[in-house]
Nucleic acid binder design. Structure first.
Length: 429
RNA sequence: GCCGCUGUAGUCUAGCGGUCUAGGAUGGGGGCCUGUCGAGCCCCUGACCCGGGUUCAAAUCCCGGCCGCGGCGCCA
């Protein structure tokens, strides 16, 4: 290893100890007879001091911002240092010298537009704010996984190259698969159902692709979907589970990332638990009362969700029991009213972050449902045939990671929370 | 895809018919400085998206294109 400690680990307990540190030159302050280098690594910042006359001084003369260096020095506490502790450098060497000027200010004295930042993303990801975002994401995904493991779910992986459209609706990206036409999966939906039909409780964290025109701060053509599917669950069981997961993710981020939240100047919203539920029907009534021209069967668009959010005064809520016609073919209808379905969306303010339902588990019902939507059951035979051999009742949901991240970071575009986002116009970096 | 707004040095921004030889900040180069922490001070460097038009005169007004942002649509 090139280093004995990481930046954050340098504290008073190491007083007078020799350490090796390595990282990026975050900022440089040259006072003539003394140089201050703020060194950054994956854990944070620490100040290095280089005195005139030391061996290191001449090398430090050559430093530029964002150069990668390794330094040997003695830790000393000093109330004048930023964290009350700093490292007096004895030796320093440059592992990789950064060219100047940088195309982006990593130290955040001048902020750049999102577009510029995405173009210069590798440098952008070095900014403290983006480091915080990446940490929060990791903590959130970890909390999601751990909660599911604790409830006996298995993490699974479904194919991402598929033969045909899974759900109908969304446009897919075609790929050439050994001379045959194939597509990138828009969702693991059908495969996760089949897995739930074999191993009961499964989840997957994986990318999905949609070739949609959608050009908004909430859509990407490639996104990470957090999917859960469980046999012997219905949509109420799934909503209970989801509530636990949301709670776990918020707690996990709060616990592990308080400094990151501070870096983002963001406080996690205080949600009501249990998460309030409102039916689709009641939502429509509320919207009507608010003077919106809507009727049963209409989709609740983003502008309408804003109205609903304001009327309800809730930041996180379920909209349940959607019209069957507004849902995909695998969604189970309600027993007492087949025009409605056992389905839900979880809404953060006016943003849908999760969508789920009880699924149809009978082949006859599925075939009928496909026909009603103008889809041909025979093209779904790869899926339907397994319903002949013992398919339990099951339910599940799909959660958009980057949308949840907006809730956990306070940022306003999913392009900002994804390291290398893919949208209609962006294919690099 | 539609509607609206926008495009000025590496980055962020001021200017919105002549006062622009385009101002500031940050960065970069050079100099001074041994406790900086958005270090400070001095000198220097670097820009009007592209193409047409209007006008005596265009960064500034008009048209087209491209890019970006916001909203909507598509999408779950």
């Amino acid at each position: 290893m090139l280093k004995t400690h990481r930046a954050r680990e340098v504290d008073e307990s190491l007083e007078a100890k020799e350490v090796f540190l390595a990282g990026w030159v975050h900022t440089l302050r040259d006072l003539g007879g003394k140089k201050f280098i703020v060194l950054r690594d994956g854990t944070g910042l620490v100040q290095l001091v280089v005195e005139k006359g030391s061996k290191a001084f001449d090398v430090a003369q050559e430093l530029t911002q964002e150069s990668v260096v390794r330094a040997k020095g003695l830790v000393r506490t000093d109330k004048r240092a930023p964290r009350g502790v700093e490292v007096k450098v004895e030796e320093i060497n440059i592992l990789s010298r950064a060219k100047t000027p940088l195309p982006l200010d990593v130290s955040d004295k001048v902020s750049a537009d999102l577009d510029t930042r995405l173009r210069e993303r590798v440098l952008d990801l070095r900014r403290l704010e983006m480091q915080a975002v990446m940490r929060i994401q990791s903590a959130a995904v970890r909390a999601f996984r751990e909660k599911l493991y604790s409830k006996g779910f298995l993490e699974v992986f479904t194919p991402k190259i598929i033969a045909s459209a899974t759900e109908g609706g969304a446009a897919l990206f075609p790929v050439i698969y050994f001379g045959k036409e194939a597509f990138l999966a828009q969702s693991p939906q059908l495969y996760k159902e089949l897995l739930a039909g074999s191993i009961e409780r499964v989840f997957e964290v994986a990318p999905a692709w949609r070739a949609e025109e959608s050009d908004t701060p909430f859509h990407l053509s490639e996104f990470v979907s957090m999917d859960v599917e469980a046999a012997f669950f219905d949509y109420n069981d799934i909503m209970d589970l989801l509530e636990d997961l949301i709670k776990g993710m918020i707690d996990g981020v709060q616990r592990e990332c308080s400094d990151c939240l501070k870096e983002l100047n963001y406080e996690l919203p205080k949600f009501e638990f249990p998460i309030p539920k409102i039916t689709y029907k009641d939502s429509i009534e509320i919207l009507k009362k608010e003077g919106v021209d809507v009727k049963f069967g209409d989709d609740i668009s983003t502008p309408l969700l804003r109205v609903l959010n304001k009327a309800l005064g809730k930041d996180l809520y379920f909209i349940t029991d959607w019209p069957s016609s507004a849902r995909p073919f695998y969604t189970k209808a309600k027993g007492d009213d087949p025009s409605l379905s056992e389905s839900f969306d979880l809404i953060f303010r006016s943003l849908e972050i999760v969508s789920g339902s009880t699924r149809n588990s009978s082949r006859d019902v599925l075939e009928e449902s496909l026909k009603q939507r103008g889809l041909n059951p025979s093209s779904f035979e790869f899926f339907l045939r397994w319903f002949d051999y013992g398919m339990p009742p099951h339910a599940g949901f799909g959660m958009g990671l980057s949308r949840v991240m907006l809730m956990l970071t306070g940022l306003s575009s999913v392009k900002d929370v994804v390291a290398f986002p893919r949208d209609k116009k962006r294919l690099t970096p």
